[in-house]
Design a protein around this nucleic acid. Sequence first.
DNA 1: CTGAAAGCGCTAACAT
DNA 2: ATGTTAGCGCTTTCAG
Lengths: 343, 343
Amino acid sequence: MTRAGRPRRGGMRQVAQLAGVSVSTVANVLNNPRLVAADTRRRVQEVMTEVGFVRSGPARQLRGLPSQLVGVVTLDQGNPFYAVLNRGIEDGLADAGCVTLTCSTDVRPETEARVLRLLEEQAVRGILITPNSPDVGGILDVSRRGTPVVLVDGPEDCDSVCSVTIDHRLGGQLVAAHLIALGHRRLAYVRTAVEAVPAIDRLDGFRAALRTAGLDPATALVEVRTSPAARLVEDADRIVDELLDRADPPTAIACANDLAAVGVIRGLVRRGRRVPGDVSVVGYDDLDFAALLHPALTSVRTPVRELGRAAARMLLDEGGDDHHHAEVRFEPTLAVRDSTGPP
Amino acid sequence: MTRAGRPRRGGMRQVAQLAGVSVSTVANVLNNPRLVAADTRRRVQEVMTEVGFVRSGPARQLRGLPSQLVGVVTLDQGNPFYAVLNRGIEDGLADAGCVTLTCSTDVRPETEARVLRLLEEQAVRGILITPNSPDVGGILDVSRRGTPVVLVDGPEDCDSVCSVTIDHRLGGQLVAAHLIALGHRRLAYVRTAVEAVPAIDRLDGFRAALRTAGLDPATALVEVRTSPAARLVEDADRIVDELLDRADPPTAIACANDLAAVGVIRGLVRRGRRVPGDVSVVGYDDLDFAALLHPALTSVRTPVRELGRAAARMLLDEGGDDHHHAEVRFEPTLAVRDSTGPP
DNA sequence: CTGAAAGCGCTAACAT
DNA sequence: ATGTTAGCGCTTTCAG
């Protein structure tokens, strides 16, 4: 079926004409209904529904009204973690009648720059961004030019914008401390291919906890890296092989995310190891399925959705006159389940 | 910085003044750079970076240029399935320089109506929507008023807009046929609490396949429903108990999604059953972790990301003059893995 | 209570 | 090669 000519949307002008009033009366019906006589109002409203009148957001914005659009930039909105984050942001924005323009950067600087530009041109109310590197210069420029920015899960050393962070260092520490407390002395850490701030912090925290316990990361810790290709199924097997075939195989494996952990467990089972009997495994992020696995996965949980809400509220807050940039930090917790035990 | 407070963004006018040219020359630098003398152009560009000039999208739109914004409405962008769908849409839109305004409806009609209104007011280029009920009247109104709409994974009986669908009936059939072929005769189906079109279709297809095989759904099939509360961990246990404690426990359990399947497997293991030795389990959606589970989950796979891309392209296509509304249907496939076997 | 009029920042003729 | 100008649809004084 071919679409008939797109019905030309008349504006307030057309409505005014058909209702026999002026545009400003129509405007009043919309913005200050009580100023308009009841029957005038009704007549105008009738015409509006009749012609299918829809207000023009762009025109309002041009007049200087605050935008209802908020830009949200993450590394990949297809990733469950960011998906939930986005959902939290959406929640936090809903009351203010705002919606999100969501973009993914895939950790590519050009893409980040491109979407930032785009969002800025849309004159969004503000931008919530998960920076893809510690170098947030371009982001600060945007802020400087007048678009409020909130950094999410990024570098914290920056007080010219608001930020919401997760203490990933603590997350890493929790994992290491848990494993050490269980008696593990030969540990492995499976890192992701991506070099983002959170990933680095986690590993940092992990190492720090080892040192605190008097262990030397150089000897007690093996680091493995998932391949960027991220065909996790085969990759997990490769990683497990690599680890088990060492002279001193680790008794516990910490993973940078839950998916990797699932893969590792599967690889261990394939090699006849029991989890946690022979080897303990820890995940990170505590995605929905983690608690459902067998064995239920010990993992690091962050209140992601709440984090999104907080970030959204912070942004909305920037409207206030006496606004001070602040940092809200969320602490992850360790959900201890059945995939970890004594060596 | 010259001014205190929020730096007031000057427009082309300011740039023109500072560069000693007219606004239209500035416009030309932006839109038809080759029409402008090289050094004039450079001068203008210098001023632009100096004052941090950013084009106003709203103003351009008001002038009638196509919007770069596309509305995307799903049931819940936090759900991995829709998250990946959104990602696919984002991909498909990227080349056209468009970004997505993503909204979730939580299957609430008022919310759907609200966001549709909002998107319409933003004068988006088009809307991609996963309707939350077969009643798409409100959506068609939007289309009628002039905003191109593409229905995603919704009812198919509608030829006044484009649509992208998944043959969930086929999906259900594939599952049932697979289980029947393995020799199962007492089956269970775990449905979700939500009554959306796709969910209904899946079950329909499942039943149809039973009938085709000469089985009577009334006796060969037990339907169980997850609680809306969706505390899946306990719920899965409850469901498994309910199923196993029957006089004629099923030998195969099909689930409406992978998460439910994981929970069911866990519940079965808890009750000492082996999968697939004692009971076979099938998921739906084939999320990332499905293949990594132990046993690897047999599940129904849809090319979700590709589906999103297709939907996006369809929408962009509506710009064309000789556009015909069409339906693109994607066929799911069954990824047979280790969670299913003979009874 | 209602109307007239001045732009918001930009584009696209149409001059020069 | 550059300048002038008329709006796009709306909000917002300021007058009737």
